[in-house]
Amino acid sequence: MMTMPTISNQNGAFPLLRKTELRRLLTEKQLQQLEQFCRASSKRAGSTLFRQGDPADTFHLLADGMVELRARPPGRRVYRTVELIGPSCTFGDEALFGETTYLTSSRVLETARVLALTRPAFDRLAANHPDIALGVLRCAGNCLIKTIRRSAILTQAPADVGLRMLLEELAGGNGNGAPIPVRITHAQLAGVLHVSRETVSRMLGQLASEGTVEVGRGIIRISSH
């Protein structure tokens, strides 16, 4: 498995665990116990955490940043974006649910702080702290439900409505009057929305003419108004 260099590994897992959805599922004491089984790291944009087909040996929880999940459909050579992972969501869930290999590749889009829990570590956690292990599984399940719900909405809504919703979600609702930059390409948006890149480019052009977005190379600035 190829991994890009880590920026640092000095931050403990506990402060990051408190930033995730696990804080709603576990007590402070349980989070401190979980810290003993996790490792925390920061990854640069462009880092690959795992590739499609690699052994599914580690579960990940994103504290900050953004991660792209990509997959290569059978019979094709080109990878396609299938999901965008934001803060507090999980990925690499295959490691907890019995899959032997990862179904997608993961690549960091924005500098990310990530918590990792290996399969052996989770097995030890389940044996010694089953209540905490259940909390981790519930967190993963909540993220999967969120992904399924969003996918259903985005694929059934008109493409322009879906794009607006996705951009609002990526912006995170953090508005202080200034445009919010999101590092993402037209092709990545097209993959999540299940439309062509040309369709995304046309719709972004319309949004730009309305003043809703500013489109740059590999980055979209979204109006916070």
Rank of each mutant, 00 (worst) to 15 (best):
E68D: 07
A112W: 01
T100A: 15
F59E: 05
P73N: 12
H129Q: 12
A116K: 05
L69T: 10
E21A: 14
T90A: 13
C38W: 11
A45Y: 06
G53D: 09
V67Q: 04
E28M: 11
S42M: 07
R119E: 09
R23C: 14
L125A: 10
A127G: 12
F59N: 02
A112L: 05
L84E: 02
R113L: 05
K29I: 11
F97E: 12
V108A: 08
V78M: 01
L26S: 07
V67L: 09
T81F: 06
R70G: 04
A63W: 03
E110Y: 00
R113M: 10
A127P: 01
K43L: 13
L125M: 09
D131L: 09
A112E: 06
V78W: 02
T20D: 04
H129Y: 14
S47Y: 07
S47Q: 06
L31F: 10
G98D: 13
L49F: 02
R107L: 12
T90K: 00
F97N: 13
T81W: 00
F97V: 15
T48N: 06
L31R: 13
G98T: 05
D93Q: 12
L69I: 13
S42F: 06
A40F: 07
H60R: 00
F37Q: 09
L61N: 02
L125G: 08
